[in-house]
Structures are given as C-alpha cells and as structure tokens.
C-alpha cells in the first residue's frame, strides 16, 4: 500500500477518497459509453466501427470502478488521505500553479514564468538573496534563447512581447 500511511491527524479518510474517486470514474465511464454510442458501436461488414472499442472500454471503467466503490464502502480503512498540515504546502504550490497556467493565456509564458518562479522562491523557498532575481529573470531569458532563437519554436506570448516586437 501507500508509502507512508498516516494514521493520525485530521482530514478526509482514505475510504472517503476511494469512494469519491471511484464514483467520479463511474461517471467518466458513463461519458465514454455515451460518446461511443454516438459514433456507432457495432461491428460493420468491414470490421469494428469507431465506437466499438471505446464502448467496451467505457463498460470496463464503469464495472471495475463499481467494484472498487463497493470494496471501499465495505472496508474499514481508517487511515487519513492527507492531513491539513500536509496539505497546506501542496495547496500553496497547486493554487499558484493553476493561476500561473491561467496567466500564460493572458500574459504569455515569459512574464508569467518570472512571476511564478519569483513567488515560489520567495514564499516557499524563503529565498531573499540575489538568487531570486537571477533565477526568476534568467530562466525565462534562457528559455527564450533556446526555444525562440535556436529552435525557432514560438511560445505563447502576451501583449508585452507583441509590443516589444519579439
């Protein structure tokens, strides 16, 4: 089982998470089945149609997840999935990461990356010295040189880059 099961502390139980995930997967399976039926699940004269395999894939997802759901419902797993103190740092990275992805769509990748690396080093790494500006500025610049100049790969850009004519 999981590497370091936590028995103490408060938080959602393993059992609850198992139930939630299995239920979600049943839903996913249902969507797959629905999508397959839409494109045809039969076996035409010239072999299986587009939805033939996905249909059974969907059925198996639903079936196996239902078993997992029942197993979890019957189990007495009292371990905690994650405790509050454990989860706080995860959220402290996850939420800014999601904000970073959203920012890429608006600001482009370069300035978002600067802000994200800066945030990470300042808040999580507690870095206060010269390394912070060096990495936060240096990494995007290096990325720009490698991708846009050497390999001629265009990365997402925002209004600032357009204005600079990059």
């Amino acid at each position: 089982m999981s590497a370091a099961p936590e028995t103490f502390g408060r938080g959602p139980s393993m059992r609850l998470m198992e139930l939630v995930v299995a239920a979600l997967l049943v839903g996913v399976g249902g969507v797959v089945i629905w999508g397959s039926v839409k494109v045809g699940i039969g076996w035409a004269s010239d072999g299986p149609r587009a939805g033939y395999f996905p249909f059974y894939v969907g059925l198996l997802i639903v079936g196996s997840s239902l078993v997992t759901f029942v197993q979890a419902a019957l189990s007495v797993d009292r371990r905690v999935f994650v405790t509050g103190p454990q989860f706080m740092p995860v959220l402290a990275v996850l939420i800014p990461s999601l904000a970073y992805v959203a920012a890429i769509g608006i600001l482009g990748i370069y300035f978002s990356s600067m802000a994200f690396i800066g945030y990470f080093m300042w808040w999580i790494g507690k870095e206060r010295g010269w390394l912070l500006p060096a990495i936060a500025l240096g990494a995007p610049v290096a990325v720009y040189i490698v991708f846009e100049r050497w390999f001629l790969v265009s990365l997402p850009k925002g209004p600032v880059e357009l204005w600079l004519g990059l």
């Binding site: 990470f120 999580i124 790494g125 870095e127 990495i135 995007p140």
Partner: peptide, 10 residues
Amino acid sequence: FSIIAPVILV
C-alpha cells in the same frame, strides 16, 4: 528544491 521545482514546473 525551492529553486529547481519552479523551474521544472515552468
């Protein structure tokens, strides 16, 4: 970690 992790994420 606090230096390499954000760079990896980027």
